[in-house]
Design a protein around this nucleic acid. Structure first.
Lengths: 346, 346
DNA sequence: AACTATACTACAATCGATTGTATTTTGTCA
DNA sequence: TGACAAAATACAATCGATTGTAGTATAGTT
């Protein structure tokens, strides 16, 4: 299986060496491998055979240097240290998969960056950033201003998040206000009064969901009870602690709008522990529609963001910007769907 | 916020240009920025200031070409098309996070590759591979032989998986046999007889878990019932279908060993749908200990692989290989823990 | 056989950094 | 002030590809 010719293994051949073997010049090799019409078909054939035979792999770095690009896009997971959003939230993984797929189609590779961005300057001088043709940032966290700074310099940036006043960077996002309203209306339709909101409003996207929640309540003339709003962090242990503390006070609630499916699952577990039945006593709605939401029993009702489309839009907007196109700076709206509590919904 | 000096924005400066500005040569700039003792302290200071002022960012590609390295590690998610392992399995995300952290400490960036590896040659000629100083592959899938081929050529490779006879690549893995046995013994300790196994034995890791399951059953003198073994795929819709079909036959079982937490969650949901109580009628054990396992109600008992340590070991082994060290080819054993069904386990 | 058009291929500059060595500057002391 | 050592900087080759242009075969025509 493994070639026993010691000279070949672990030894990579140069384009010049390949040229020598083929008895032609470097330029002919280069053109031959890229199937240029300037090279004789027979010559190309010979070049290809020799390349294969001698395990020639092109030095990507040299090529990148010459062509002034890397074909790498850096994807930043904006994990919020304060809200404790954790690397284990499947939402991120689905987003990574979606973006990676779209990037592959567009001919880019994906470089992952998951340290928190402290300052625009630090990030700009990081290898990950220097090496990339463009940047995709998932979530705004609390660094809206830094993102504005970052946007002023190459490489091009696209952010997944919510529209914030004074924004200078390219944005793709779903309609969070609508999402919050849909979740709330769903609970109201089930006859819930006194609906709680679980999520940290300091994050731009969650602020909009809260606005939607508020708006939906207003439609029925419900008054807004501030004691029903809880800044639940994303990470499970902290989320549990905050929720437990809230439930210990025995609040009178009939429904909960949660800002992620993980928060919803934590909430449901906590409710059970307090002897409260779900959904008979308290109904819960999640957010994101992660794959696992359909595996719980009963299946979690949740707001679905079209992550597939999100990835496409992010990549489309970014590659457009890289090519120097002036993209229309509209906020692309992902679709929202209320998933009912049944396993097979489609 | 955004600088209005039109010459600076979006325009990146050259090292030569910086040299001209500073009135010194390129070499001095290069040495100055890397804090070489060959350069006068005052000169260094001036260089740093100018670099900052003019937003100089070094061209990483040129540097890489000269230094013959990229500082990029390619991580391959071996999603199995047949077993339908899906991008949404949080296990992968936790592994990505762990590897990324360890890589960051070691000074590497992480490039994600999540297309299936069709053949060793194809992968070797992919940009992702050409650009990387090393490769980390998560899971062997069904391509053991291709991995052997791949191992024969640079760049160095480390695989997360199970020890397979005839293996030629570097390996890191946890003790799957032990894991399977632990899970099974746990169920036996709860008094379960007739314990089923949910997972596709064609995958090397799962084959070992099955062996452990078999071994544990043997310890009590239980006979092995082939009808209790079910090749459940990883992906949720397919998993559900297979499990439903199995339960429809009303098999007499008291426990299930599942090869992932997602499979376990699917199983539990299906059991509920069949009116079977968990864990009163049938006890279930998962595998991986994903974060969400602790959020279900009741919390899922599961086998925990130390993913933190897995990432460290993978990176350590790979960076060692890159530096040309001959690493001892032992299989590193991750720890296994049976998590009991309680929310706060520690 | 000479000439031209066409089809190939070779030459050499270029991308932006690093680094061994040569060269210049600075400082010290007689 | 001149000589010499040490410190600081400049020079130039190098990494491995791409590409505009110059140059050389080859074929076709008369």
């Amino acid at each position: 299986m493994v070639s026993s010719s010691k000279t070949d293994d672990f030894k990579t051949i140069d384009m010049q060496q390949l040229a020598d073997l083929a008895g032609v010049s470097r330029s002919t090799i280069s053109r031959g491998l890229s199937d240029s019409p300037l090279v004789n078909e027979k010559t190309k054939q010979k070049i290809r055979e020799l390349a294969l035979k001698h395990n020639y792999v092109m030095n990507e770095t040299a090529r990148n240097l010459r062509l002034q690009k890397s074909n790498i896009i850096c994807m930043v997971l904006m994990l919020d240290a304060v809200a404790e959003q954790h690397t284990s939230d499947p939402f991120f993984l689905e987003m990574i998969g979606s973006v990676a797929d779209s990037l592959a189609i567009a001919g880019y590779d994906l470089l992952l960056y998951h340290e928190p961005i402290a300052s625009a300057d630090d990030f700009r001088s990081s290898r990950a950033c220097r090496q990339s043709d463009g940047i995709i940032i998932i979530g705004q966290g609390r660094i809206h201003e830094e993102l504005n700074l970052l946007a002023a310099f190459a490489p091009p940036i696209v952010v997944w998040g919510a529209n914030v006043p004074g924004r200078k960077y390219r944005l793709v996002g779903s309609d969070n206000l609508q999402g919050g309203a849909l979740a709330t209306r769903h609970l109201m339709a089930q006859g819930c009064r006194r609906i709680a909101f679980f999520g940290d409003r300091e994050l731009p996207e969650l602020a909009l969901r809260y606005e939607g929640y508020q708006q939906a309540l207003g439609e029925r003339g419900d008054s807004l009870d501030p004691s029903l709003e809880l800044a639940v962090p994303f990470e499970s242990h902290h989320a549990n602690a905050v929720i437990e503390q809230f439930l210990d006070k025995k609040p009178k609630i009939e429904g909960i709008v949660c800002c992620s499916d993980l928060i919803a699952m934590s909430a449901i577990a906590s409710l059970h522990r307090h002897g409260i039945r779900v959904p008979e006593d308290v109904a819960v709605v999640g957010y994101d529609d992660i794959d696992i939401a359909s595996r719980t029993h009963p299946a979690l009702t949740t707001i679905s963001q079209d992550i597939r489309r999100a990835g496409e839009l992010l990549v489309h907007k970014l590659t457009g910007a890289i090519k120097g196109k002036r993209m229309r700076d509209t906020i692309s709206t992902a679709t929202l769907v209320v998933r009912e509590s049944s396993l097979h919904q489609g």
